[in-house]
Design a binder for these strands. Sequence first.
DNA 1: TTCCGTATGTAACTAAGTCACCGAGGCGGG
DNA 2: CCCGCCTCGGTGACTTAGTTACATACGGAA
Lengths: 221, 221
Amino acid sequence: MRKEDWTKAFPPLQQLPPETVERLRAGSLLVELPEGSRIFGPGQAPESFLLLLAGTIRVQQTSESGREIVLYRVHAGESCALTTACLMGYEEYQAEGIAETKVRAVAIPRLLFDDLIATSRAFRQFVFTAFSRRVTNLFRVIEEVAFERIDARLAQKLLALAGNNAQIVATHQELANELGSVREVISRQLNEFARRGWIKSLRGTVEITEKAALSRLAQHS
Amino acid sequence: MRKEDWTKAFPPLQQLPPETVERLRAGSLLVELPEGSRIFGPGQAPESFLLLLAGTIRVQQTSESGREIVLYRVHAGESCALTTACLMGYEEYQAEGIAETKVRAVAIPRLLFDDLIATSRAFRQFVFTAFSRRVTNLFRVIEEVAFERIDARLAQKLLALAGNNAQIVATHQELANELGSVREVISRQLNEFARRGWIKSLRGTVEITEKAALSRLAQHS
DNA sequence: TTCCGTATGTAACTAAGTCACCGAGGCGGG
DNA sequence: CCCGCCTCGGTGACTTAGTTACATACGGAA
């Protein structure tokens, strides 16, 4: 079986000198992870740097009381940079990464990763940029949790999860877990949204009927 | 005037080969920042990697409504790694860094930083470790804001700010800003603590009288 | 069709944040 | 010394968010 040329999936990697790309291709490992599998978490460290080819990873945190909050998602074409760096500095790491779908990824072993960082300016740029994006995102999360109202946050999340579709497949509990809130609160908010005619709520799904209204609520007011 | 040998202040840098250290010493800049100065923030990017020799930098975030939250502090002997990385990936960056005291720091210009990352494995280790620590810390902040009760968080913060002393010099407003809460809430909590005999509250200062009780409250219960 | 697990509804209560205002203390200018 | 002002803290009434403890409804498997 011919080794798939996955490097095409990462535009920034195209900038690398050909021999670097070759080294990457040769030294890294294609892995496939089933949906729902736990990729890393407290007491479980990935020993390599991950680049996602397909699927998404959800990075979340769980409190003692069982409440959860989603910190960010890693999509195809992105790297799990934050995580990896944390592991390289090996602090204990309390977030966990879950394969939200079946995931195909390239695993770059620690040594090769280190080597690439050392030799390729473009690769460094790639890694730092990914870092930067994640951290910026984390700051947003903190801002939202600390300062924004739950109705605005829920509206935002509904819009984000919907994308271009109008249908969102998620239970109230799952929505609560996205926001670090609890089911009852989300149920109440959704009922209020429904009462205003902004959404329709079926069992296990939400249908957006008034995107504009949600958007208005989402941007703060 | 002889150039001060600041490299002694950073044990990890002692591991570097002598010529690297020499390059660092020669290519970097000793800077001094007055108390209260804004070191970076939205629309203000530091063009170099900072290593703190003395003083502390407070990194915080401000909401539209004026509420604030302290994300972390950079102390002497530490680097402002997160920030710098963010800037290298140049995303817009909404946190700001304030010199909490007079600050002496070494500024490593971007090019030299990049060069050192490339050539020195020890330096990379140093930078990634610092990263890791910060990110781990950010995760803690998210967990606290999202899941912990304000009384427990306040107790924690009081203990942290006090260190070995019993006296904390801070107004209720400042304590609220530490936690991303508001003055009224903090006042109420402090009154309750005082009523229980755990603290004494003077104008602009708090004196801890029952450290043990605060500790108990701090670890969740 | 019945049963059972999951999803959602609801009410009463506590915790946290908001709003509006008050009063006390400290400090500088006259 | 007194006045006025400004910062700090206190308080009550109200809204929003989270907790506790149930009840009910849906939908697939037996």
